[in-house]
């Protein structure tokens, strides 16, 4: 319940934050809302020696209509994303998913950037950004870099960010043709046992799955089948292809594969397919 001791740095700007990370390297962790990191620190599963608190960088909290896409500041809280009129209008999937995370208190603190940078396969927003085919923008000592969501999630709690980089913006295409998030839980506040996200973007259908492997994953086989004219029901049958889901107290790998198919079928139907 009591984190190990650490030094606390509160940079006044994004560039100061990047410098602080560069200075402390692996020893440092970014703190945004803290709702991924602090729970680990309280159980001493994470013991960073420096926390770089970027939670107050107001410049990173926004939802902007950027023409063909939506630009969301990394420090936008789940609560704000859920209620943001621009997000609700242009990226209703993200807005909906943000409202399904954790509980209200968590949504009052947790941020989209924190959630994505944490790269937890059981987390909701990473799969949504994957399904939408989003792009992540990171600031490092060398400036800004864009990373497609498809290449961002590299392993369990492991992202493409280098230790010196700060995730600054999440870009997603405007997608209003239909969407769904089927989150299967035993208890409302829990992580998804399995989740299936469907986004219809420019005539394409994006499908991504939650908690079925070390990273959030695109259901490529489903997407390809749909693109090739398969029915939603036929496509959903392919949802578990290539998955190597984890086993835990709530599900075996086999049950997760089954759920991936069932939930994907339901999500596709809910998205109007």
């Amino acid at each position: 319940m009591i984190p190990a001791s650490f030094d606390y740095v509160r940079p006044g700007s994004l560039d100061e934050a990047v410098s602080a990370l560069a200075e402390h390297g692996d020893e440092a962790k970014l703190l945004a809302g803290g709702h991924s990191l602090l729970p680990l620190m309280k159980l001493r599963l994470a013991t960073p020696s420096v926390l770089v608190d970027i939670g107050r960088l107001g410049e990173l909290s926004y939802v902007n209509d950027a023409g063909d896409h939506l630009a969301i500041g990394a420090l936008t809280r789940h609560h704000d994303l859920h209620h943001d009129p621009v997000a609700m209008h242009h990226a209703p999937l993200l807005s909906f998913v943000a409202g399904r995370i954790g509980d209200p208190q968590v949504r009052h603190r947790g941020t989209i950037g924190g959630s994505i940078a944490h790269a937890d396969p059981a987390s909701d927003l990473p799969a949504a950004v994957l399904a939408l085919g989003g792009t992540l923008v990171a600031r490092g000592p060398g400036g800004d870099r864009e990373i497609p969501a498809d290449r961002f999630f590299q392993g369990f709690l492991e992202s493409a960010l280098t230790p010196e980089e700060v995730l600054t913006e999440i870009r997603v295409p405007k997608a209003t043709a239909g969407h769904a998030y089927q989150k299967f839980v035993r208890r409302a506040q829990d992580w998804a046992i399995v989740g299936s996200v469907v986004a219809r973007v420019d005539g394409r259908v994006g499908v991504a799955l939650v908690n079925v492997g070390p990273t959030p994953v695109r259901a490529d086989a489903v997407e390809t089948a749909l693109a090739g004219g398969a029915s939603a029901a036929e496509a959903a049958e392919l949802a578990a292809e290539g998955l190597e889901p984890p086993a835990d107290n709530n599900a075996t790998p086999e049950f997760r594969r089954h759920l991936a198919r069932v939930l994907t079928a339901r999500a596709l139907a809910e998205a109007g397919l």
């Binding site: 703190l31 803290g34 709702h35 602090l38 608190d53 208190q105 009052h108 603190r109």
Partner: peptide, 18 residues
């Protein structure tokens, strides 16, 4: 749970520094 600037937060997961 307490209110921070009027919104509910879990005070076990907020640093005093935050």
């Amino acid at each position: 749970t307490v209110l921070m600037d009027g919104e509910s937060v879990k005070s076990c997961t907020v640093l005093a520094a935050q």
